[in-house]
Design a protein around this nucleic acid. Structure first.
Lengths: 338, 338
DNA sequence: GTTTAGCACTTTTAAAAAATGAGTGCTAAT
DNA sequence: ATTAGCACTCATTTTTTAAAAGTGCTAAAC
């Protein structure tokens, strides 16, 4: 906050009020409509509004329109003006039911919670599993399906499972692959997925070379399979993908198509991944996903499972509610862990 | 076709022409614009148009508008008027590249082909894996992740893999589960997934009862896991989900939101599953998915892998192209199989 | 008996004009 | 420092007008 950005308390309150009204109504806020709540005349409010606009916390949609919050305005709001919002008993109950269900694996619980959040808020939620390349290999299995088809299944220390069907090149036998698989298991369990490729080459290959004739081909087979597993990895779970379309800002074909294609774009969605501690709010141009939305996100790390949970909504978001919901889930999970 | 639906050859040609023009232009077709191609006066065309309208092959958007095909019109077109369309060399090449790639498992090849089709046509493609309940169990594995968490992995004879992380109830040990798993493998490999539940109860349970103390709990564990696998199963693969939005009919917020939510609705999409042989065209109200689209679908069955591949596009679809594309893929796959 | 020219009539679409209204900025008084 | 009052701006809505596209029907032509 610059020195020159000083606001007296009435101006702060005015800003808060305008933002909260705009969040509800999605219409530019005029001075007259604020008279009762501000206990001063519309002229005074107009003066303050003009001042807030000069500081770039507010904007006009045209010369004689009411005021609309700017991104800077929203930012000031979430940083300094917003009061934590009590969750309703109903909302808490819904989350509790999931979080108390001891049969649920944590990652499933997170998914279900974010489903609920999406439902409550009418925004879109997304959970991103962290890139599994630093997970550790727990087990590889090769399951022969028929003469020349096998399924390779990899399980990591986080319980993550990947699989791939492959045709076995005609110059190697399924049997050789199965045998090699055993050797890999003996030698590479506990290895980081990202290091498997190198270890396959320098540690496993020499061993297999002594036991299997076609060792070059077999190693190629495994290299390719593992490569797929580490690259593939796109654990993206959406909930309420179309919820955000219910927001009144999505009232034009182009806007709708725009946001939808972004949500379908895996690479773009992955950019939402957290890089910071705590609950972070990225408004408009601050986020790397879409200038017209706000992304509220936070990381989770429970034992070995890591990732990001995020809410995507309009810049005009019910920040207080969203933050409290994420907070609640995050706290519960982290408390539980101890 | 009813007796009274008689059209002379000029009328048939007119209908064909109007439909093909409308497919390209998306604008009602007027009589004057057809004079050159029909080699008769606009008055004659108007007369024929009125007749075709009386037979309900054409419609007007308002009293003095040009004509637009009705669903019945499209239907007559695909059944009797449409000529097979040669695929372009370019399109064939793209598909060939995929289909000739001998390293690709068939199901992956289908997915990639449908991706291409979606790209070529700008419609949305979807591949539905058939309900796996009549697949046969190839292998179950239990992989312990930590003291109370395991991953259960099921592989079927089709190479299909499902997995589920579960917390092990505190009153049974991971070890007991692993042991039981071995027993299940010995006894149930080759069993239809849909019959596993019953066999678990009547064949496996008695065996396990003799070896494991907490057999009731262990059996519950497996029942639940298998139940999940058979129910879960929603192999839906979209390609170009947003492609259909490029079609000019999707120029209004409500239409866009409508189709998008339908595409997100798993239950609705599943209704696309084929029930007939050959390539089938379901226009508008004929399909169970959305009155405003046409679904062109066909089943595939390669060895044990079965499913449906479908194209979703506007009723004003380039039927000839879509049919030829699907035909090409289907023939290639079925020829290959022999 | 078909086909066609011609014309009155209908409806959509676009553009222009007019009326309404919400809301501001500024001045001068409190 | 606050407020009442008023002129002015711009978006929105309604009305008017004009132009274009296209039909249906009648009566003549083939």
């Amino acid at each position: 906050m610059k020195e020159s950005d000083f606001m007296n308390s009435r101006q702060q309150e005015l800003l808060k009020l305008i933002i909260e009204i705009y969040i509800k109504t999605v219409k530019p806020v005029g001075s007259k409509s604020l008279v009762k709540k501000m206990k001063c005349s519309s002229a005074t409010i107009r003066n303050d509004m003009a001042y807030l606009e000069s500081l770039e916390y507010l904007e006009k949609t045209h010369t004689s329109s009411g005021r609309v919050p700017s991104e800077k305005g929203y930012k000031y709001y979430v940083d300094f003006l917003m009061k934590p919002k009590e969750l309703t008993g109903d909302d808490v109950l819904k989350l509790q039911t999931i979080l108390n269900n001891k049969e649920l694996v944590v990652s499933d619980a997170i998914l279900k919670c974010m489903e609920i959040v999406s439902e409550i808020t009418n925004y879109t939620s997304v959970v991103l599993g962290k890139d599994s390349s630093n997970h550790l290999l727990k087990q590889v299995s090769i399951i022969p399906i028929d003469d020349n088809k096998v399924v390779a299944v990899v399980v990591t220390n986080t319980g993550h499972v990947e699989n791939k069907q492959t045709l076995v090149p005609s110059n190697i036998s399924v049997n050789e692959i199965v045998k090699s698989c055993e050797i890999i298991n003996k030698n590479l369990i506990g290895t980081k997925l990202s290091e498997i490729s190198v270890k396959l080459e320098y540690e496993v290959k020499p061993i297999i070379a002594t036991k299997i004739k076609q060792y070059e081909e077999v190693m190629n087979f495994f290299q390719e399979a593992f490569n797929d597993f580490t690259v593939k990895q796109s654990d993206i779970f959406f909930s309420g993908k179309t919820n955000i379309l219910k927001q009144p800002e999505y009232n034009e074909p182009d806007k709708i198509k725009g946001i939808i294609s972004k949500l379908e774009n895996v690479d773009l969605v992955k950019r939402i991944e957290t890089d910071q501690e705590g609950i972070n709010i990225y408004i408009g141009e601050e986020n790397k996903f879409d200038d017209n939305v706000t992304v509220v996100k936070t990381s989770y790390k429970i034992n070995d499972e890591e990732g990001t949970m995020a809410i995507i909504g309009p810049k005009r978001m019910e920040y207080d509610k969203v933050v409290m919901l994420l907070n609640y889930i995050k706290n519960y999970l982290e408390r539980d862990k101890e």
